[in-house]
């Protein structure tokens, strides 16, 4: 339980951002982050230290994102714990919003790759999460960043 609480504390925001980059919808991203932690909780006893725990969690989270298309109707809104705190929407600055909007418009797997890169994950680790070679990841990240810069430039940001 303590292990789970620590993981939850360390990774909640990171996983939330990954989901947010994938769908660009704060409520949905929160639901998806929670689904991720449900899987983490269930699979934690099976986790052996052969992999980095971060890699393991990001794999679960990104796979959950990829399966999102299937789950669209499975978790009716409001079934997951509601957020009682009356929160102001963080990250409401236009530049941040625009970044997430641009990322959510990329092809699905690119969204995952760039989100991990922006989360400061080493490219070698991204390669093991996604299952592509490191050089392939490097090329993709370069291309995605170029695309993002173009979009920002076009938008006059």
């Amino acid at each position: 339980m303590q292990a789970f609480a620590d993981i939850y504390k360390t990774y909640w925001q990171k996983i939330f951002r990954l989901c947010m980059g994938y769908v660009n919808d704060a409520d949905l991203a929160k639901d998806m982050a929670q689904e991720t932690f449900i899987i983490v909780w269930e699979q934690l006893p099976k986790f052996r230290n052969e992999a980095n725990i971060g890699t393991w969690i990001f794999r679960i989270a990104s796979n959950n994102c990829l399966r999102h298309i299937e789950k669209l109707n499975r978790f009716p809104r409001g079934e997951l714990p509601p957020n009682l705190a009356d929160e102001k929407i963080p990250g409401s600055e236009p530049q941040i919003q625009f970044l997430y909007k641009c990322i959510a418009e990329l092809p699905e797997t690119d969204r995952i790759i760039i989100s991990l890169e922006l989360e400061n994950i080493k490219q070698a680790e991204i390669a093991t999460i996604v299952g592509l070679s490191e050089s392939n990841i490097r090329v993709r990240i370069h291309r995605i960043k170029e695309k993002l810069h173009q979009k920002f430039a076009a938008n006059g940001q």
Partner: peptide
């Protein structure tokens, strides 16, 4: 981009509620 990216946060739900739901 990394700075912008990291500024997006969300208030984390109570993990206890989550376990109850599971």
């Amino acid at each position: 981009f990394k700075d912008l990216w990291a500024k997006q946060t969300s208030i984390e739900p109570n993990p206890g509620d989550l376990l109850l739901q599971i």
